[in-house]
Design a protein around this nucleic acid. Structure first.
Lengths: 202, 202
DNA sequence: GTCTATAGGAAGATAGAC
DNA sequence: GTCTATCTTCCTATAGAC
């Protein structure tokens, strides 16, 4: 195989691990299967990473950063408040439907991090970054559109993050059969009314 | 060790497995550790269960039924609508705070079921039973208090189930540090207004 | 940096005595 | 039904040649 600097090999192996884990699940993904997915031998793996744990850490941070980017892209401010809520939620949901395996893997890795000693902070980091992304959006809207919130932005942010998280997990478990369109409409309407309630109450 | 009919041994091993999995995580729980937790030898395990998978199936159904019972107990109708929402949510949340490991294990097993070929139906069953419990409550309230809903009861039920699911997962990841009291107050208020909006709109 | 080969251990499952 | 001992397989990680 062609020689390659360690840093690039690390990226290659991390990407291969994400593909393998998304396809087979975290539990079934072995160092051998990752090396095979990357097209290198097992020793190359251990030349680049001290241990499997070290790779999983790289996978978690990479995937977290990617997920947060997805959320931030979806949440970017639009022309009106209602439009921001509706389009943002729609964009996020489109991503979930297009890449269910990726979101599934994210949940698996959260569980992994919570159980692995010394990895708990990676799970927290992920959820704190989600909260920060929502908080950032809310604060931006508040400045731009003169919103005044009845509850602190971080509280509202945490609530919105939890709700999207729960809806995503339910979709992954139950599939598309149910009336998700209705639910999304309901959710969107309620989020909009929620924010506008805050405005009215201020 | 004292002899015991197979059925009872199976229950004993299932309970031991739940304790071991809640303590060590699903990934680290082996047939050996389960047998040790139950105080029997490994062969007894395989005398009662054909395979580890067969035991996990028993664990999942047992824990699902238990979780659904918890939800149903929390959701029982109270004197007023707002009271039902508030007390129900509070009762559920008290259980989450008192038994975080049990809820954590439930999430882990959902992932396990989604990944294990032939076990997907167990994950779906769990979430469908949650939805059924919420639907049952809503229908009961509709009959008792003359509610009229703007959205079908199953849609509202699925939404509420997803929201509590997301909040629970966020709590398990982020711990108690954040302002969960504020969030719960916000959530309760919004659920109440949500149902009452439905009433007004009808 | 990359390879083949293998060490070393732990897992699920079975054999056969009691 | 329960036990101890063992089989077989698969994993992570390393050794050493190229």
């Amino acid at each position: 195989m062609a020689r390659m600097p360690s840093a690039e090999r690390r990226r290659q192996l991390t990407e291969a691990a994400i593909r393998a884990m998304a396809r087979d699940g975290v539990a079934r993904t072995t160092t051998r299967s990752i090396a095979a997915e990357a097209g290198v031998s097992l020793s190359v793996f251990h030349y680049c990473f001290d241990s499997k744990q070290a790779l999983v850490e790289a996978v978690i941070t990479t995937l977290t950063d990617h997920s947060v980017t997805v959320v931030k892209q979806a949440l970017r401010p639009r022309s009106t408040l209602v439009e921001t809520v509706r389009a943002g939620f729609q964009a996020y949901w489109d991503h979930v439907r297009a890449h269910p395996d990726e979101h599934m893997l994210t949940y698996e890795l959260t569980q992994y991090a919570l159980r692995e000693p010394g990895f708990e902070h990676l799970a927290r980091r992920q959820y704190e970054l989600y909260g920060a992304a929502y908080t950032e959006l809310i604060d931006g809207l508040r400045r731009t559109m003169g919103l005044r919130l009845a509850v602190p932005a971080p509280v509202l942010a945490r609530y919105l993050a939890a709700m999207t998280d729960g809806l995503t997990l339910n979709y992954l478990v139950l599939g598309d059969e149910s009336a998700w369109t209705d639910i999304l409409d309901t959710v969107t309407a309620h989020i909009a009314s929620l924010v506008q309630d805050d405005v009215r109450r201020a």
